[in-house]
Nucleic acid binder design. Structure first.
Length: 425
RNA sequence: GUGGAUGUAGCUCAAUGGUAGAGCCCCGGUUUGUGGUACCGGUGGUUGUGGGUUCGAGUCCCAUCAUCCACCCCA
């Protein structure tokens, strides 16, 4: 166990094994999202604290307890973004795009929340987010879900479940909320301590309490989905119809809730049972109230975000890429020729490992450990002749080639095998 | 913020309160111009940290820190 500096709590070092998975996820996202004509944006990690205070509200203690925020040397109250949507709305408004019609954006990057770490929950984590500004219809919600589905399908993930719900709108939710609070208050005795407190602080959350006794008591609790206004009911019906047309499988889960008021209508989660208590892999929905809340013109919008770390945990290991060629240099006199040969091979498109000098045996062991396909041996004889000894590590066959011939041999071999998954015999 | 579990070599793990070990990895050798296998040798530890009990603590007690899991919260 190393002394000295250690990483701070709740953050992870992205070592090569992990970065290979991240990259696979990022590449899938870029490819799938661009087929749906979404454009990538890269937004600041630092934002004014007030942006999130405004979007999240003071209702919960998220801002005071779970955001990294500080006053900088200029006296500005700054924070590390805890999520992507508010910053995207801010950037979209600041760029004047609210007059430009619907906008389709996606982004990926680190987010920060000062929570107690646990499985699938870090203090610095990465999200892939998608926002679609200026569209109001259920068909767009379905498109969003189809895109999320395609993304996860591209990653080869199975055993996932899409759950959808409707959260209503400012026209129908307040009345429902009152009805729910009244219903819960009558049955408070049957609920756990935390739920009793939640009746006032966050009544919707009672519905997805994890305590079994609560779930039993809540079996007949009123659900938003049964109390939607006409417009919301029509929207939800339209969503289900479009999902049916797209053959995207889903289940309606009336207990999906959101903590904040700017959410409306469609809410969805894609969950797995393979990650313990943090099983939501992708979540999103409609936030028709947020743009106005942040000072822009009333603008409907829908989006989702997925956690890169959780997705990575569901993915199989990604094999490391092996170098194509190991260069073995023997003797000081051959060194200049060997160095130039390595560079020439790289310029020719091969990935080349310098085996580090020393005995031939040692350098071959390095080459073998790294899984190279070929070894180029350059000693005094080869240097004098302007050639190299070219050994195929699979067959063991060795011959004398010029550098140009070696490049050709290397390229030919890599065309016929899957690059980067050099199999060891 | 609350609760539980766990901290011994780079990694995975042993060690009745009585000399801190093994396997893997790494380095070297058997082979100073040829890899995998095998064999031989070697590097590497304030047992997370700080106190306490004891003739003696990796082991028992207290505190603290870290990791993991769950609760809370989940934008």
């Amino acid at each position: 166990m190393s002394k000295g500096f250690r990483r701070i709590r709740g953050v992870h070092d992205g070592l090569p094994d992990m970065v290979r998975r991240w990259r696979r996820i990022e590449e899938a996202a870029r490819d799938v999202f661009s087929r749906y004509a979404f454009a990538e944006v890269r937004l600041p990690v630092l934002e004014p604290t007030a942006l999130f205070v405004r979007s999240i509200g003071e209702a919960t203690d998220i801002v005071s307890k779970e955001m990294y925020h500080f006053v900088d040397q200029g006296g500005d109250d700054i924070c590390l973004r805890p999520e992507g949507t508010a910053g995207a709305v801010r950037a979209w408004l600041q760029a004047g795009l609210s007059r430009a019609g619907a906008t389709r954006w996606f982004y990926m990057g680190p987010m920060f929340r000062r929570e107690r770490p646990q499985k699938g929950r870090l203090r610095q984590f990465q999200q892939i987010g998608v926002e679609w500004f200026g569209v109001a219809g259920p068909v767009e919600d379905a498109e969003m879900l189809a895109m999320a589905h395609a993304f996860l399908h591209r990653l080869g993930l199975d055993g996932l479940r899409l759950e959808i719900n409707s959260l209503g709108c400012p026209a129908c939710r307040p009345a429902y909320r009152e009805r729910l609070v009244a219903w819960l208050s009558e049955r408070a005795d049957a609920l756990c301590d935390t739920c009793r407190e939640r009746i006032q602080s966050n009544p919707m959350r009672v519905l997805d309490c994890k305590v079994e006794a609560c779930q039993a008591a809540l079996a007949d609790a009123p659900e938003m989905i049964a109390h939607l206004c006409g417009d919301c009911a029509a929207h939800f019906a339209g969503l289900k119809e479009a999902l049916g047309a797209l053959e995207v499988a889903y289940v309606v889960n009336p207990r999906i809730v959101r903590g904040l008021d700017y959410y409306s209508r469609t809410a969805f989660e894609i969950v797995t049972d393979r990650l313990g208590a943090q099983g939501t892999v992708l979540a999103g929905g409609r936030y028709d109230g947020l743009v106005a809340e942040l000072g822009g013109p009333a603008t409907p919008a829908v989006g989702f975000a997925a956690g890169l770390e959780r997705l990575a945990m569901l993915l199989p290991e990604e094999p490391a890429e092996c170098p194509d060629v190991g260069v073995v240099a023997l003797g000081d006199a051959a060194l200049p020729h060997a160095l130039r040969a390595a560079r020439a091979l790289r310029e020719g498109g091969c990935s080349v490992l310098w085996c580090g000098g020393g005995s031939a045996r040692r350098q071959f062991k390095v080459a073998d450990r790294e899984g190279v396909r070929f070894v180029a041996v350059i000693g005094e004889d080869e240097a004098a002749a302007g050639r190299l000894a070219w050994k195929d590590m699979h067959s063991g066959e060795q011959r004398t080639l010029t550098v140009d011939e070696a490049i050709k041999a290397c390229r030919a071999a890599l065309r016929s095998t899957a690059r980067g998954i050099a199999s060891r015999p």
